[in-house]
């Protein structure tokens, strides 16, 4: 398969290799991956457990570095950025949604959503406005002052979605966001993500091992054993 590198790609990976050293042997988590992820679309990375989805998302999210190859995010060669610059880069461009929600337990729903805006140095007034609007968009405005342990799994993930999107990032990465939820709640979370993706016109990359979710995606990247199997576009741009 020849990868299609569109001019409106948010992420470009070229011949990316990622190995982990386990004992005395190198485990190849990603093997020669070249891909381009189109902007403003809802892409899914699908693959069995251990196929390298998380590793791929970590590289795209600039929280991990490739062993070899080029990684370009938002037209920036992120392999050359220092640790602090990478942190700033993530703060500006990337939103994360994790499988285990990963809210800061000592902060309320509202404060969790406000957090990324503080990192961006936004004023109190605009922080309030953006965070409340985002909580409303995920349907949790009335739970704004609850702490994570006072929220259900689905509610936590909604807060996480609000936190990822509140800064209007170029790119949102969701690593198996429904794996810890029951199927009904999971479905509503997928629907919510789809909705906000469309509303905010953000690029979403969503990793899952659940083949049933393919139907929701605009683009599908299937990987197995760290190698890209195929890239299929479900709907035409």
């Amino acid at each position: 398969m020849v990868p299609r590198v569109s001019s409106s790609s948010v992420v470009r990976l070229s011949r990316v290799l990622k190995t982990y050293r386990v004992g005395s042997t190198d485990v190849k988590a990603l093997d020669d991956i070249t891909l381009a992820i189109p902007a403003n679309r809802f892409s899914i990375v699908i693959g069995a457990s251990g196929s390298g989805k998380t590793t791929l998302l970590n590289l795209i999210g600039c929280i991990d570095t490739a062993t070899d190859g080029a990684v370009e995010v938002c037209e920036e060669d992120v392999t050359r950025l220092s640790d602090d610059r990478l942190a700033d880069f993530r703060s500006r461009h990337i939103g994360f949604i994790f499988q285990n929600f990963s809210l800061v337990p000592v902060l309320t729903a509202y404060e969790n959503v406000e957090y990324p805006l503080i990192l961006l140095g936004m004023t109190v007034a605009s922080r309030r406005q953006h965070a409340m609007a985002m909580l409303e968009a995920v349907g949790l405005a009335e739970h704004a002052h609850r702490f994570p342990n006072e929220l259900s799994g689905g509610q936590k993930q909604r807060v996480a979605i609000a936190r990822a999107l509140v800064k209007r990032p170029t790119l949102v990465l969701a690593d198996e966001p429904t794996a810890n939820l029951d199927s009904v709640t999971g479905a509503s979370i997928i629907a919510l993500m789809r909705r906000v993706q469309a509303e905010l016109n953000t690029t979403f990359i969503f990793a899952s091992h659940d083949a049933q979710l393919i139907s929701h995606a605009d683009d599908i990247f299937a990987i197995r054993d760290g190698a890209l199997l195929e890239h299929r576009m479900e709907t035409e741009q």
Binding site: A87, R90, S91, S102
Partner: peptide, 15 residues
């Protein structure tokens, strides 16, 4: 530890 990872992903620097 997990919280540290999360906030670092959000853009908090090591410092």
């Amino acid at each position: 530890t997990n919280e540290i990872g999360t906030t670092r992903a959000l853009g908090v620097r090591r410092q």
